[in-house]
Design a protein around this nucleic acid. Structure first.
Lengths: 333, 333
DNA sequence: TACTCGCACTAGAGCGCGCTAGTAGAGCGC
DNA sequence: GCGCTCTACTAGCGCGCTCTAGTGCGAGTA
């Protein structure tokens, strides 16, 4: 920086002003400084900057390396943070690198606020974290923790999917749940309540599963086994997520079950898997962009006023109807 | 830090020593300092640390938010960097956030070395980057750039896959390539050379494609169209990657083609998609862990000696035989 | 006793910036 | 001429840490 200043024939302070895009430098000088800086390859040191500024203007984002959906969220967080003049620091939780470790790293870098994606932390830990630094948890709620929450209305997504299926004439609709996975409990509840609402309570059936392809495949085989023993197949399957839905599809279509003629399948997430079927997977889309927007906004607001009560943004997901859902078998299309 | 020092009744320097885990403090004092620090929630400020140290001991990793394989690499980079006492800083390239921008961010944080995953940068840009800071490019080669390279022996993977198919009796093997995608050119070349080596040159056929499900689906439909016009289906398809392979599988099995009875399909990457088929996708696995290890090692070595000539680690991938490849139709199994 | 050595610890400079307080000079009204 | 404001710029402190060059002290040695 001193070099740049010397070469441009100005003081260091002027260079600082130019690089911060602040008023107080003539257009002429500004250009000269930038030109010299470019020549000698100068670039402001963010560590020093951060130190001198006292504020880091950095937003820490913890994500899980395996979660596909987190990619979409990260993609949304970058531009939104930039709008507020914030840098984004990413830290991944992975096998052998716990959430706690990932968060420590962010804290060490003096992130002013944290956005944790799909945390599996206990409410107490999240609460402690939230007391230390403004924290927004996306996709995971912890009732009484001092933090803000952003997630999608799981129930609403399931409701839309169920209404769609019922409208198509389906009655024997089973749900493969996602065990302890994020959102599973809500989806399960919403399924049950939708069945009840449509007077289909006797038909309701939740098959325990996971958010994996394997789980979908196993469930598919289970259903096929039942069919071979004379039990009727359901006419529609509401899977816990897209991966599970794909597993179901793979195992059933391979056994000659035609989708959606013989069976409808609905997923959840609208991940890239949704396009894997030539006909497209009917699924529920969570709006990652809007979730990211809300998360950043919450963080910024809590930064301004740390005493804000804990808030929650619940975004409505949207059913995306593609090729895997159709009229119930036997219906006059 | 001063607070900690005061409360523990020592100098700031001593606290520094304790937190750097350096010799020069008695066990007793060490414990006392740590205890006090914990009480008042002190945590070293990495910005200040980095500034004072002159060296950041930080390794910058640029990745593409969409690439599934990068997850595995990141997972491998963390522990390896830790072994060398290095912090990892992640920066994602995404839609609306160019590689250049992602790299700028890392440079601004004074990363001592950079690992760029699946860069699509021009050789010249990579060269310039490499002259500024030790750089390792994973998965993408730029012939004369001042950087180190880690990638898998695409040719070797294809060779193994082809040998496997030929051994199963296949002759009419087509390859769907990946256009300008990473590794595509090598895979294409290796396919051609394998066909030649096995005396199957007249049968060789490369269908232009991409590394997407959609591309696989389209190719599948193309082949089905040909069949309907009386042309024979190939007996095996070597797809450009797993996503493309899945597309092929989806479109063909839906049309009643049975895999692997009527047709064998081989993918590339061993991504999580490989397990999507109930029978498993035969594919080529790249060893992400070892690639990550090499990348970090290269970076560290070039850090010690920046004048090192450009090096290249070519890791052998391994064919993973699962359910989508089988004997050629008509063979006595 | 006088010295050297090693250990536990400290003083204080300086890392590269941002920022506050200030200056110099030009333009203006009276 | 004076004071005023406005723009363009500068001096220099301090952010929280690391690190070098020390100090003081007890033990070992001649």
């Amino acid at each position: 920086m001193a070099d740049v200043a010397a070469r441009a024939g100005v003081s260091r302070a002027l260079v600082s002003i130019v690089f911060r895009n602040q008023p107080g430098a003539s257009e002429e000088t500004r250009e000269r400084v930038l030109k010299v800086a470019d020549e000698i390859g100068y670039r402001p040191d963010s560590a020093a900057r951060l130190l001198a500024r006292g504020r880091s203007r950095t937003l820490g984002v913890m994500f899980a390396v395996q979660q596909i959906f987190h990619k979409d969220l990260i993609q949304g967080i970058y531009p939104e943070a930039e709008r507020f003049g914030y840098d984004v620091l990413l830290s991944a939780a992975a096998e052998g690198r716990s959430e706690a470790k990932a968060v420590e790293a962010l804290l060490g870098h003096r992130c002013e606020a944290l956005i944790v994606l799909g945390s599996e932390a206990e409410a107490a830990d999240l609460d402690e974290l939230g007391r230390r630094v403004p924290t927004v948890s996306v996709g995971h709620r912890a009732p009484r923790a001092r933090a803000d929450f952003v997630h999608s209305a799981e129930g609403e997504g399931v409701r839309q999917a169920m209404d769609h299926l019922v409208e198509l004439g389906h009655r024997r609709i089973v749900h493969i749940d996602g065990g302890r996975g994020p959102g599973s409990a809500e989806r399960r509840r919403a399924y049950r309540s939708a069945m009840r609402r449509h007077g289909l309570e006797p038909e309701a059936r939740v098959i325990p599963g996971e958010h994996t392809e394997q789980s979908g495949i196993e469930t598919g085989l289970l259903l096929l086994g039942e069919r071979d023993r004379g039990l009727p197949l359901p006419t529609a399957v509401l899977a816990g997520n897209d991966r599970c839905a794909m597993g179901v599809l793979m195992s059933l279509t391979r056994a000659g079950v035609e989708v959606p003629r013989d069976l409808s399948v609905v997923g959840y997430d609208d991940s890239h898997l949704s396009h894997l079927m030539p006909i497209g997977l009917t699924t529920v889309r969570q709006d990652a962009m809007r979730m990211a927007e809300h998360a950043v906004r919450f963080a910024m607001e809590r930064l301004e006023n740390p005493e804000l009560p804990s808030r929650e943004a619940v975004l409505d997901p949207r059913l995306v109807v593609r090729g895997t859902s159709g009229p119930v078998p036997g219906a006059t299309a």
